[in-house]
Design a protein around this nucleic acid. Structure first.
Lengths: 337, 337
DNA sequence: TTGTATGCGTTATCAT
DNA sequence: ATGATAACGCATACAA
C-alpha cells in the first residue's frame, strides 16, 4: 500500500533519484540500457507518479476545471450538457488531463470560481450552462487562466458554439420546402443563444418571403414543458392559426404535445411540429419527432481540444470561435401541406 | 496573478511562515491578536492555499474520485445517475471535498482505476453505474482506498442501495389494491438490482395470493425502449393477456407505449402500466405515468456523507448497507379493474 | 551519461 | 507564543 517513490526505485537500481526522474520522463540524456532497467523496475515495484508533487514542482496539474451549473444547480440533468460534458471528459482524458468540478464555497472556505480553480491548480477551465452575468464567472473569464466557453462568446476567449444560426436556416428551409408558410416559433428565455436563434429565424423567413406576425413568436422557458404548453395554447387560439410550430427544445415539446392532444389535434395531420436538440426521447416518441440534432459530442470534444491546445501552446494562442454544426433529424411530425 | 504564498504573508507581517500556517489553520497556540492580523493580511493579499502542496505534505487531497461509467461510456446520460452524481457533488462540496472523475488510461499512461485514484491522491472513491465484474473495478474495491458503492454490495464496503425490494412490494400492493391480478413484469438485464426486484416481485405476488405465470415475466434491457416494446408485444400476444404491465424504467416504457398505440390500446382504459424511476419525462407524458420515484438525490447525498465519514473517522468505520427508500408517484396509467 | 543540490508551498516537530 | 528546520515527492540547473 505504501507509496513507492522515485527514491525507492533509485535505491533498488543503484542510481540517483534524478536519473530515475529523467528515465521515467523519457529524457534523452540517459543510457538506453539504464533507462530501460529503471522503467522495468518501476513497473515491477508498482510505481505511480504523485500528481500533487509533480504539480507543485512544475506548476502544471494536468487537471481541467469544469464549470457546469444553472439556476437549478443541476446542469447535469440536461441531456445536452451531460453529453457535452461526457465527450469533453473523454477527449481530455485521451490527452492526459483529468477533470475536476469547480464551484463556489468549498466547505467552510468561501471562494469564488476563480479562486477555486486556482486553489486546485487547474491548467484551464471550460464553462457551460451557466449564468454568464454572474460576477464570479466574469472574474474567471477575465483571469489569467485559460478558459473556453460553450455557447457564449467573450472577448479574447475561445468559444465553442452550436451553430444556432445555420440550424434555424435549415429548419425554416425544411418546413418551407414542405409547403408551410405560417410558421410559429416558441423560443426559450433571453440568452445569446436565444437571440441568435430568433434573429436567424426571422431572417430565414424573410429570405423566403414569409411574413412572421409578432404573435407567432412566443416566449417560453427552456426545458419547461408547462410554459411551452401555454404558448401552444395561445398559438392555437389565434385567428390565423400556424400550420407549424417550432419548439425551443425537444423536452419542452412534451408540454405542447399535451395541449395538442387536449384539443384533439393530431400530429402531423392537423398540425406540424419540430423540436430542437435531438435527445433520446425525441426519437422514442411516436410519431418520431422531427428535430435538429446539435452535435453535443463534437462540441465537448472540440472544447477539450481547444482548451488543451491553449494550455500547451500559450505562445501561439489566438482566441477563436468554433462553430459546430448539427443536422436535421427528420421524423414524422412535419407534414407536406 | 502571481501566487501569494504563506512566505509572502510572513514577510509582510514580520513573522515566520510557520506562524502563518498555524494562524491560517486556526491552531490554538498563536496569540489571538497576531492570528487575526495574519488572517486579515492574508485576505488583503488575496492568499489562496495551494491544494497540491497541502496534499503533498498532509497526504490528504480533499478530493474524491468518481467512477461512473457504463458500456456506452456515458453513464452521465441517464437521468438517474446524473442526479445521483449531482447530489453527491453538492454534499461533498458542502463538506469541503472536490470531485475528480476516475478513468482508465489517462493520456499515454496506461493505468487502471486504482492506479488513477492513487495518482490523484483521492481520499476516497464512489462507484456507480458500472460493470462490477471488471477486474479493474474489483482491484479498486479490494484496495486500501475508502470506497462506497451504489446499488451493489461488496464485502467490507459501504453500499448505498435504492430499496428495490420495498419498491416492488409497494408497486404490487398498489396495483393489487386497484384490483389487478394479472400483473406482468418486464425486467432489465441481469444485475443484482434486477435480481432483487424480480425476487421481490415474485414474493410480493405470492403474499397476495397472485399466481405469476412464467410468461408474464419478460426480459428486456434498461433504458432501451425497443426491447421493452418487443416484450410488450409478446405479452399482448398471450392467451391470458395481463391487465397491468410493469416496465423496467420510465424511459423503456416509451417502447411499450408505441406498441400499445400500434395495437390501438388506450392507457389506462384498455391496459394499465407502471414505470420506474420517476424521471422528468414520466411526469410530462399524458396520461402522467404512474411510477416509482427513486430518491436519487438522497442516494448521492448519503453516499458522499458515508464516504467522507469513513475518510475522516477511519477508526470508527464499519461497512454499512444504507437502504434509501423511494415512493410511489401516482399518475394516471393504472386503472381500477 | 550520471549525480548533487535546490526548491516548489505547506505542515509538523521541536526548540526557544 | 513564536520560530528554525526538515520533509512530503518530484524536476531541473548545473556540476562531474
Amino acid at each position: 500500500m505504501s507509496m513507492v517513490t522515485m527514491k525507492d526505485i533509485a535505491v533498488k537500481c543503484g542510481v540517483s533519484p534524478a536519473t530515475v526522474s529523467k528515465a521515467l520522463n523519457g529524457h534523452s540524456d540517459i543510457g538506453t540500457d539504464t533507462a530501460e532497467h529503471i522503467r522495468s523496475t518501476a513497473r515491477e515495484m508498482g510505481y505511480l507518479p504523485n500528481a500533487a508533487a509533480r504539480a507543485l514542482k512544475t506548476n502544471r496539474s494536468l487537471n481541467l476545471g469544469v464549470l457546469f451549473a444553472d439556476k437549478t444547480s443541476s446542469g447535469l440533468a440536461h441531456e445536452y450538457f451531460s453529453t457535452v460534458l461526457n465527450s469533453f471528459k473523454v477527449e481530455a482524458e485521451r490527452l492526459g488531463y483529468d477533470i475536476t468540478f469547480i464551484s463556489k464555497d468549498i466547505g467552510n472556505f468561501k471562494m469564488d470560481y476563480y479562486e477555486h480553480a486556482r486553489y486546485r491548480n487547474c491548467d484551464g477551465v471550460v464553462i457551460a450552462s451557466i449564468d454568464y452575468s454572474d460576477p464570479s464567472v466574469l472574474r474567471l473569464i477575465d483571469s489569467d487562466i485559460p478558459v473556453v466557453t460553450i455557447d457564449h462568446v467573450f472577448n479574447n476567449r475561445t468559444a465553442i458554439l452550436s451553430d444556432n444560426v445555420q440550424s434555424m436556416v435549415d429548419i425554416v428551409e425544411y418546413v418551407y420546402g414542405l409547403g408551410h408558410r405560417k410558421i410559429a416559433f416558441i423560443h426559450g428565455e433571453d440568452t445569446s443563444v436565444t437571440r441568435n436563434r430568433l434573429a436567424s429565424f426571422r431572417k430565414a423567413c424573410m429570405n423566403k418571403g414569409i411574413d412572421v406576425p409578432e404573435d407567432y413568436i412566443k416566449s417560453a422557458v427552456y426545458h419547461d414543458p408547462k410554459s411551452s404548453g401555454l404558448a401552444t395554447r395561445e398559438l392555437l387560439a389565434l385567428q390565423a392559426r400556424p400550420t407549424c410550430i417550432l419548439y425551443p427544445d425537444d423536452f419542452s415539446f412534451l408540454g405542447g404535445m399535451s395541449e395538442l392532444e387536449r384539443q384533439r389535434l393530431k400530429v402531423p395531420d392537423d398540425i406540424s411540429v419540430m423540436g430542437y436538440d435531438g435527445i433520446l426521447l425525441s426519437q422514442a416518441l411516436r410519431p418520431r419527432l422531427t428535430t435538429f440534432r446539435q452535435d453535443s459530442e463534437g462540441i465537448g470534444r472540440r472544447a477539450a481540444a481547444k482548451l488543451i491546445d491553449e494550455i500547451e501552446n500559450p505562445k501561439m494562442f489566438v482566441p477563436t470561435q468554433v462553430l459546430v454544426s448539427g443536422s436535421l433529424l427528420v421524423g414524422n411530425t412535419v407534414k407536406q401541406v
